[in-house]
Structures are given as structure tokens and as C-alpha cells.
Design a protein around this nucleic acid. Structure first.
Length: 957
DNA sequence: AGACTCACG
DNA sequence: ACGTACGTGAGTCTG
């Protein structure tokens, strides 16, 4: 033995592919693209993990294992093994060479062996290291299969992920998690339950929970099979019939620890990285922050470094009283860049940069004379981006702190607003009114609805066309987030000053912009306006290219001031009525509680699904064969389950009623009055224009798009939504069957079109066709079924789904669907064509070209593919309906303003608009509202709109 | 923080 | 063989 007793040896073995894949998908929502257009998410994620482990864990030995290039013995044992796994994403393919180079630059050995997977290599080396007396051995992977190898000294190190801290799984964890006695039994569990992601089949009908129970009892798959006689019913049948498959699955899940690979501790010894190589690689990849962390050279301003106003800003213009030389002396069109700090690299086209590294001229404008000068410049522009700084995010309470403007990239102006003097603040805002209300100047902004609302409180109605970069990006990437900082990173390779850097972290003593000297806010505010303008210049050509610019300019951008007004108006809530109803509900609830406790024979927390499940199924033994478990192993106690039990078990019905009433109480009756604005007695929801994947709006804080209507006790709540005063009434206008009409138009199905043209009730018409009876003989049961079928059609129907909804057999459901497609052949054709088109384009689109990307539509995973296929049908329909009502809203809003009417639009609920109207205007506005809704986007079938009025929202229906 | 349940179109 | 209707947001319990 040459080894001397020295410091403990600590070995880390990394599962490269598992870490790379996870890193890649972690960035899939907001990909990291560098200036060469390369997706570097996988590389960055992997390297971060590697660096973290090196710095925090300080291993003495380390190696990175890759899967061997050839098929493994597992593929030969089982043809389907990993068969459905997607081909490696292209981005990972291009990332691999970089990752290998980075590993080499760290002088870490790459472990790879033909015909073996990384887990076999890692397992083998881990055990040999243990035999060599290594004190600590960590297998670095997110993969649970490795649990089988864990011993006292071999542990799993799960790297930090999505906000979760890194986690070490030791033997104790593994035994507890799988409820087993030896780590080796993990493969028995996996053999029984299978692993969908690797196509390891397991035994049908056995999931995580059952597998644990069986292995606890029998110890191994083999022993279970030997005692198959002791099992009951379907389970016995399955274990018997699929015994071999279970054994094979166990074999596939087994990590082989006898890979022919020498164990050479010297080769695994950690040594110093090749800094030169790393610098070059990080430079090429534009990993700036990482380079700073790893290489400790080239100081970079990180987010932890505050901006120091004391240091003085070379780039800001002094604004002392004696310094009144014109700021705007430079001829228009020429921007003079001030010399940079010498430590700022700022190479164009280089890695992500920050304010300190980029040439800019940001000016703080604090005197009347300079403001006047700024205004004159603003009025000469055709397009200006602007941003408001305020004391908070709640538009009803936030006060203006300052305004920033930018019309040329790199050059921006910040105007602070006087604090603690409302009149002076108003006067300052009024100075800029000629610009803000100017109809000829395009206003660019990020989430303009917010700025519009703030300025509305100062009596400003923004004029001119709008361009909202948030909405521009929403159309480009509807299912991503549209946060400005991320957009700047992705599209401008620029890291803006974070708000936290400025006002500190969230906490009880949260500062606001108003607590800072204007000079501190200036750079931040100017940067926002600057970045926003630059984003506009990136997005506009992209939108043009994809045919989305018209949708943005004609629909999304013009909708912004409409929504701002709708939110600003709000809807009045009768809080007193809510209070009374709350007491009434509480009475019912208390009574139900007592009945439930009596039926259960004990008191328990009915609101806890866990306790409820135990009482119902363990204690009372309800359900017989109908018990279902959720994926976390709890009893499922959802509506579906309980309503099946209810006829035979009164307690189930009581619980359903209890659930309904407590939901009404907590979500609506108790919550809504608390959100009433003191100033006007109304609730002001926020409509989010950039969250749904299909183009719909969503409503939050409170959500006014899910106010109850389907049940009698729920409907009561609508009675508390009332007109603003005795002189007003509510008007509710609903599109009737808008989605089915769109389906009729898209498919051009003759039968469906005819029904709509003749004004026949569409569900009865469908029933008559599907059940092959004359229209007059359609009964309510047939109509109900046909209605469900019609909904199913819009959602991308499946026999299983329809069967569930109608509580009929799958066979019966399939027959109904067949009959439907026979009667409506064009619908079937349209659905097939939609899927085919989506397969080709990898996106679906609405009538106005709004896209929804559906990458999974070509997946080999049937579940994912099915999901995407149903979206290929649903997204264009739901999205077109959303487009239509948005157009109607814009036109109605414009008309009400043009006619100077007192009627106000106050809500949108997907296919419904609600108005608060002076009684005297009702008869005048209703026909025109109807007309504008019907005519928003003419289809080949007529649109119908139902309108009602009332003293509350329920009556108006 | 995530799972569960349930309110709406 | 599998898991399934489409799209949301909020309150509650639990780890």
C-alpha cells in the first residue's frame, strides 16, 4: 500500500447525460441564446453544476461518465428499451463538444465505455472506490435508479435545481423513501412499477404504492412470483401473466457493477484547471458571470454590487444650478458616446453586458428649463419609449415617482416627480401632457397597461399608437414569460440593473423608488426605457416575418387602453349583501359539519384530503373497488369519486355540499369584499393579456372570470355584483356558441352550417343527427349527451374522455363518436387536417394568425403527442374566439368614447362582456353593442349575441 | 412550494 | 400499453 493516512478522499462521479438533459429542459421556457444564436442552456447548466460541486464540496477525486456510443446489453435484452425516447435535441448535440472541452479544461477524466451506460460505469467505480477505502463517494445525478447502489459511504448527490437546494441522499433516505430494508431492493420496486421514461414496463396495475407494499411483504420480485397464489383477483392475474416481464424489468433497472474498467485513483485526482482554455471557452460561449466566478480575473459588476451614486456618473450630466448649458446641443441624429471606465470591457457583440459596460447617455432632468427642452425634443419624435417609476405595483395606490423617455438607443432621460406635494406632482405631469396625449407619436413600453393606468390617475389619456414589447413577445412566444429583464438577456445580451439592487430585497421594510434620491433612480429608469426601445427594434422585424405584426397592431396593442379603462372602472360589490350571505353560508356549514362528524363517528378536518380519505376509506370502508389514489399515494377524494359514492353513502353527499359551501365562502363571499377599493366601493380586477397559450385574457386579484353561476347557491354571489348607482343598470352580452360556430366555419361542414343558418338549437340538432331521430323527438337526455359531444369536438374528442363525462362505457362513447363523424364528415376531415398541418408547421394558428407552438406533435411519446394533437384542434378555435371578442371590445370602447356615452365596459369573461350603463342609455347602446359584437369578424355562419339587463349580474343574464 | 380541489368559459 | 377531453386562478393543507 502506497496510500498514507492523509485527508479523507472524497470522490465525485457525475452522470453527464442526466445532468445535461435536466439543464437543457430547465432552460426550455426561457432559452439562453448567445449572440451567435446558439442555445447554451445545457452547457451553462451543466457547467454551473460542475463548478458548484468543485467549489462547495471540494472533492479530492472526480470523474464524469457518459453513456457509451453503442447500444447496450439492455437494448439486446429488450427491444423497446428507451425506444420511445426522443432523438437527442439538436441543441444538446451541438452542446456536447463544448461540454467535453470544458470538462477537459478542468482536467477531469471523461469516463466512457462502449456498450455500457453511465450508471454502470459510475456504479462500478463507486464500489471499487469503496473497496479502496475512499471515505466519501458521491454519485451526482438526478436519477432515482442510483438509489440501489447507496451504502454507508456511497451516496447520491442531487444538484441544486429550480430553487431547490442540493440534496444528499444517504442510505437512511433511500430506505425510508422506498420503504425497504436493503438498498438493493430498489430494483425490485422499479421492476414491479416500471419506468415510463425508459420504457421499462413493470407489471400492469402496479404503481409505486403497490410495489412498496408487495416488496415489504415478499422482499423481491422472484419471491413475489413464487407466492403469486397468495394474491387476489386481478392483481394475481397480472403478476402471473406478466411475471417474466417483471423479472426482465428488474434486470433492466439493475445497474451493473462489473464493467471492465480499471480503477485508477491517480487519474481521478482533481488538479488545477487550464485557465487559458477555460477563458477561451467561456468567452466563446459568452458565459460572463460564470467566468468571473471560476477564473477570478476580469472583475465584473455582479448583482450584489450596488450602484454607487457617490462615485459620480461620468455619463450623467451634472444638473447643478450653475450648469445650464443645453443638453441637446448635439445635432439630432448624432449621439456622442462618453469615454468608458477603463475596466469595462464592452466589446461589441461580446458576452452579456451591463450598464457599466455599454456606452450610454442617461440624463437626469431636474430643472424647469431642461424639462422644457426635453419636451421640445419629445414633440419632434415619431416614436418614443417611456416608462413610469412608482411607489408600488398596485395601480390603485401607487404614486408616480418619475418618468423616463428614450427615442434613440443608448440615450435616455429621467424626470423625477416631486414627492409629498400632490399639486406640484400634477403640475409636472401636466408639463408633459402635450407629448403624452399627442396622437401622432407612437408610445413604446413594456406592459403599457400599467403606465397608462398610473397616468390616468393624473388625468392623462395617452395618445397615439401603442407598441407594447410584452405583447410583442407574447405573440412571438405565447407560452413563455415576458419579463423585461429576461427579454433583455435573451434578445439584447444585456443584463439590466435589477430592481432588487435598487430598492433592496422584499421585506417588511421594503423601500420604494420614492425613498431614493432621483439620481439613484435615474439610471434604472433610463435603462428601462432604453432597453424597451431596443427590444421593439428586435421584435418588429420578427413579427413582420411571421405575419404577426398586424395582429399586434390591430388587436393586442389597441386593446391595452381598453383594458386599462375596464380595470379602472371596476365593478361595484354590495358588501352588505355579501356579509349577510356569509352568515347564512356559515350556518349551513356548521350544520353540515355536525352531520358529517356524526356519520363518521369522529371529528376531523374535513378540509384535509388526507384526513378525509382516511376516514372515508380506512375507517368507514367506503367505496369497495372504486378507491383511487393520487400520484402521491393519497386517497383521491375529488368530486368524481364522491359523487359516485353519494347515492349509497350519505356522508359523501354531505361532504360534497360542505366543499361547495366552503369554497363559495372562502373564495368569493369572504374574499371579494376585502378587495373592494375604499375610494369607489368597487373591485378592480387585473386582466392579464400575456399569460394564456391560446390568446384568451385571464383575470386575477380577484379573478372575476370564475364567479359562480352553475349552482343555485353559487348564483347568489352574482346578485352582489351591482350597478354603480341607482341611475345605472348592468348589461350582459354573450356570444352564443361562438366556438361551435367557429368550428362550423373552419370545417365548412354543410350540416353544421345549415343548423346555424336556420337558427336551430345546435345541441338538439347534433342529437337529432347522432341519434338518428327527427328534431322534434330529441329528448333532454339526448340533448345533454349531444351537448357533451359538441364540447368534446372542440376539445379534440376521445372515447375515453366522452365516456367519463357521460358515465357510459368506452364502447358506447366510441359508437357515438363514430356516428357523429358519419353525420359531420367535414368536421372529421378538418380535425385530421389540423393535426397534419400542425405536424408540418409544429404550430397551430387562429384566423388572425396567432400561433401556438406544438413541438410535441411529432413526439414519439403517445401521451405528449395526444396532448399536442388535441391542442392543434382546440387552440385555433379557442384562440379565434379570443381574437373576435378582443376586436369587439376595441370597437365598442371606441364607439362609446366617440359618442361620449356614460356606458362603461366593466368585465370580459371569454365570450361575455358586461357593461355598467346609465338607464337612459340602455335602449340606445344595446343594439349597437350587439351589432359590433356580431360584426367583429364575420364568419360563414351568422353570429348570435344574447343581451340582458338587470339590477345585478345574475339578473342581467 | 406543491398537491389537491373546484370555481368559470 | 399507456393515459386522455381545452383554457384559466385561488384557497387550503401539508411537508
Amino acid at each position: 500500500m502506497t496510500d498514507t493516512a492523509a485527508a479523507p478522499r472524497k470522490l465525485f462521479l457525475l452522470d453527464a447525460f442526466a445532468l445535461i438533459y435536466r439543464a437543457h429542459f430547465a432552460f426550455s421556457k426561457n432559452p439562453r441564446i448567445n449572440s451567435k444564436g446558439m442555445n447554451t442552456g445545457a452547457i451553462l447548466g451543466f457547467t454551473n453544476t460542475l463548478v458548484e460541486v468543485l467549489q462547495k464540496e471540494k472533492p479530492t477525486h472526480i470523474g464524469v461518465a457518459f453513456d457509451g456510443p453503442k447500444k447496450t446489453f439492455r437494448h439486446e435484452q429488450f427491444a423497446a428499451y428507451k425506444a420511445q425516447r426522443q432523438a437527442m435535441p439538436e441543441d444538446i448535440g451541438t452542446a456536447l463538444p463544448y461540454i467535453k472541452q470544458i470538462i477537459q479544461a478542468f482536467d477531469i477524466p471523461i469516463l466512457i465505455l462502449d456498450g455500457f451506460e453511465a450508471d454502470d460505469v459510475i456504479g462500478t467505480l463507486a464500489q471499487r472506490a469503496e473497496a479502496h477505502g475512499f471515505e466519501e463517494i458521491y454519485m451526482m445525478t438526478p436519477d432515482k435508479d442510483y438509489c440501489q447502489l447507496v451504502t454507508d459511504r456511497i451516496k447520491i448527490y442531487r444538484p441544486a435545481f429550480m430553487g431547490n437546494a442540493a440534496e444528499i441522499l444517504d442510505l437512511d433516505h433511500v430506505l425510508k423513501r422506498f420503504e425497504i430494508e436493503r438498498a438493493g431492493q430498489v430494483i425490485d420496486i422499479l421492476g414491479l412499477q416500471g419506468d415510463a421514461s425508459d420504457n421499462i414496463p413493470g407489471i400492469p396495475g402496479i404503481g409505486e404504492k403497490t410495489a412498496k407494499t408487495l416488496i415489504q411483504k415478499y422482499g423481491s420480485v422472484e419471491n413475489l412470483i413464487a407466492h403469486v397464489d397468495e394474491l387476489k383477483g386481478k392483481q394475481q392475474e397480472n403478476v402471473r401473466n406478466f411475471a417474466e416481464q417483471g423479472l426482465l424489468s428488474k434486470e433492466l433497472a439493475t445497474i451493473h457493477v462489473n464493467v471492465p474498467l480499471p480503477f485508477e485513483p491517480e487519474a481521478l485526482t482533481l488538479s488545477a484547471p487550464d485557465e487559458e482554455k477555460l477563458t477561451a471557452l467561456f468567452d466563446e460561449l459568452e458565459f460572463r458571470q460564470l467566468a468571473a466566478r471560476v477564473l477570478k480575473t476580469a472583475p465584473v459588476r455582479t448583482s450584489a454590487t450596488p450602484i454607487s451614486p457617490a462615485k459620480g456618473r461620468k455619463n450623467s450630466v451634472p444638473t447643478g444650478a450653475g450648469h445650464q448649458a443645453s443638453l441637446f446641443a448635439a445635432p439630432a441624429g448624432i449621439t456622442e458616446f462618453v469615454e468608458e471606465d477603463e475596466d469595462a470591457p464592452g466589446a461589441p457583440g461580446g458576452p452579456r453586458r451591463t450598464l457599466a459596460e455599454v456606452p450610454h447617455q442617461y440624463h437626469l432632468i431636474e430643472t424647469p428649463r431642461l424639462r422644457q427642452e426635453l419636451l421640445e425634443f419629445l414633440l419632434r419624435q415619431t416614436e418614443v419609449s417611456f416608462d413610469t417609476e412608482t411607489t408600488g405595483l398596485d395601480t390603485m395606490t401607487a404614486r408616480l415617482v418619475g418618468l423616463s423617455f428614450c427615442w434613440r438607443p443608448g440615450e435616455a432621460y429621467y424626470v423625477p416627480v416631486p414627492q409629498d406635494d400632490a399639486a406640484a406632482a400634477q403640475a409636472l405631469v401636466d408639463e408633459f401632457r402635450p407629448f403624452l396625449e399627442h396622437a401622432g407619436i407612437t408610445k413604446v413600453g413594456q406592459n403599457l397597461k400599467y403606465d397608462l393606468t398610473i397616468l390616468k390617475h393624473y388625468g392623462i389619456r395617452i395618445g397615439g399608437p401603442l407598441f407594447d414589447t410584452m405583447l410583442a413577445h407574447y405573440l412571438l412566444e405565447p407560452d413563455m414569460r415576458h419579463n423585461m429583464d429576461v427579454l433583455a438577456e435573451t434578445y439584447l445580451h444585456y443584463t439590466p440593473v435589477s430592481i432588487t439592487e435598487l430598492i433592496g430585497p422584499k421585506g417588511k421594510k421594503q423601500k420604494t423608488m420614492a425613498d431614493l434620491p432621483p439620481a439613484d433612480v435615474s439610471d434604472y429608469a433610463c435603462e428601462d426605457a432604453d432597453v424597451t426601445l431596443q427590444l421593439k427594434h428586435v421584435f418588429e422585424p420578427k413579427l413582420q416575418e411571421l405575419g404577426l405584426l398586424k395582429l399586434l397592431n390591430d388587436v393586442e396593442n389597441p386593446l391595452v387602453p381598453v383594458l386599462a379603462d375596464v380595470e379602472y372602472e371596476g365593478i361595484r360589490i354590495d358588501s352588505a349583501a355579501m356579509g349577510e350571505y356569509s352568515a347564512q353560508l356559515q350556518g349551513y356549514i356548521t350544520e353540515l359539519e355536525q352531520q358529517i362528524y356524526a356519520a363518521a363517528g369522529q371529528e376531523f378536518n374535513i378540509g384535509s384530503p388526507k384526513q378525509l380519505g382516511e376516514v372515508l376509506f380506512d375507517k368507514l370502508g367506503l367505496g369497495g373497488g372504486k378507491i383511487r389514489k393520487t400520484k402521491t399515494g393519497q386517497y383521491a377524494t375529488g368530486e368524481e369519486i364522491l359523487s359516485v359514492l353519494a347515492p349509497d353513502n350519505p356522508i359523501a353527499g354531505l361532504i360534497l355540499e360542505y366543499r361547495q359551501l366552503t369554497k363559495l365562502r372562502s373564495t368569493y363571499v369572504e374574499a371579494l369584499p376585502q378587495l373592494v377599493c375604499e375610494a369607489d366601493g368597487r373591485v378592480h380586477t387585473s386582466f392579464n393579456q400575456a399569460v394564456t397559450a391560446t390568446g384568451r385574457l385571464s383575470s386575477t386579484n380577484p379573478n372575476l372570470q370564475n364567479i359562480p353561476i352553475r349552482t343555485e347557491k353559487g348564483r347568489e354571489i352574482r346578485k352582489a355584483f351591482v350597478p354603480r348607482d341607482a341611475g345605472h343598470v348592468l348589461i350582459a352580452a354573450d356570444y352564443s356558441q361562438i366556438e361551435l360556430r367557429i368550428m362550423a366555419d373552419f370545417s365548412q361542414d354543410a350540416t353544421m352550417i345549415e343548423a346555424f343558418r336556420n337558427g336551430i338549437d345546435i345541441h338538439s340538432s347534433t342529437a337529432s343527427k347522432v341519434f338518428k331521430v327527427p328534431l322534434s323527438e330529441v329528448d333532454s337526455e339526448m340533448r345533454r349527451k349531444a351537448k357533451t359531444v359538441n364540447f368534446g369536438i372542440i376539445y379534440g374528442i376521445s372515447a375515453f374522455g366522452l365516456a367519463q363525462r357521460l358515465s357510459i362505457s368506452r364502447k358506447e362513447a366510441a359508437e357515438i363518436i363514430d356516428a357523429y363523424f358519419e353525420e359531420f364528415p367535414a368536421v372529421k376531415k378538418f380535425m385530421d387536417a389540423s393535426i397534419n398541418q400542425a405536424r408540418e408547421q409544429e404550430y397551430a394558428e387562429t384566423l388572425l394568425g396567432r400561433r401556438r407552438y406544438l413541438r410535441d406533435v411529432n413526439s414519439r411519446n403517445a401521451t405528449l403527442r395526444g396532448f399536442a394533437e388535441r391542442n392543434a384542434i382546440n387552440a385555433p378555435i379557442q384562440g379565434t374566439a379570443a381574437d373576435i371578442i378582443k376586436i369587439a371590445m376595441i370597437r365598442i370602447h371606441a364607439w362609446l368614447a366617440a359618442e361620449n356615452l356614460g356606458t362603461r365596459m366593466i368585465l370580459q369573461v371569454h365570450d361575455e362582456l358586461v357593461f355598467d350603463a346609465p338607464k337612459a342609455e340602455v335602449d340606445y347602446v344595446i343594439p349597437r353593442i350587439k351589432e359590433l359584437m356580431i360584426g367583429a369578424l364575420p364568419l360563414s355562419v351568422p353570429m348570435e349575441v344574447e343581451v340582458g339587463t338587470g339590477q345585478n349580474w345574475l339578473q342581467a343574464h
